[in-house]
């Protein structure tokens, strides 16, 4: 699987990409694979304020629920409406079309401190 080099990753299996002060957040290929068929995604409303580490939503498979934690803090700008009607997209295209939310980042350093693609893949390898 391709883990984009420009993204940063967390040990909770989220990815973040940054454009200006807007971060796009999703869950990783590895995460969706562990969860299995995703049936529902619960996301926050735009305007919500998140601190790094806050639980901001959840992803559900038939028999499991996983909380998702904000990898960076800031204001929620947008939640991906595609996932409301088509949660299966999260299985199909987790790193692109099935992003979860966009955040206006309050502290860019939080982004820089996350894992690189290589470090994340090493971490996932070690975990499994």
């Amino acid at each position: 699987m391709n883990y984009p080099e420009s993204y940063r990753y967390t040990k909770e299996h989220e990815w973040v990409s940054l454009a200006g002060d807007t971060a796009t957040v999703g869950i990783t290929f590895h995460a969706q694979e562990e969860l299995g068929d995703i049936v529902y995604v619960d996301l926050p409303k735009p305007g919500a304020q998140l601190a790094k580490g806050d639980s901001f939503g959840s992803v559900e498979s038939v028999k499991a629920v996983s909380d998702i934690y904000a990898p960076v803090g800031g204001e929620v700008l947008e939640a991906n409406e595609l996932l409301t009607s088509s949660p299966e997209k999260l299985n199909e295209d987790p790193h692109e079309a099935a992003w979860l939310i966009k955040i206006r980042v309050s502290d860019p350093n939080e982004f820089n401190n996350l894992l690189s693609a290589a470090d994340y893949q090493t971490y996932v390898g070690a975990e499994s």
Binding site: Y40, V62, K63, V65
Partner: peptide
């Protein structure tokens, strides 16, 4: 269906 709302999966939530 929608069992994830229920106690045996969500436990305290």
């Amino acid at each position: 269906t929608l069992a994830t709302r229920e106690q045996h999966i969500r436990r305290e939530k």
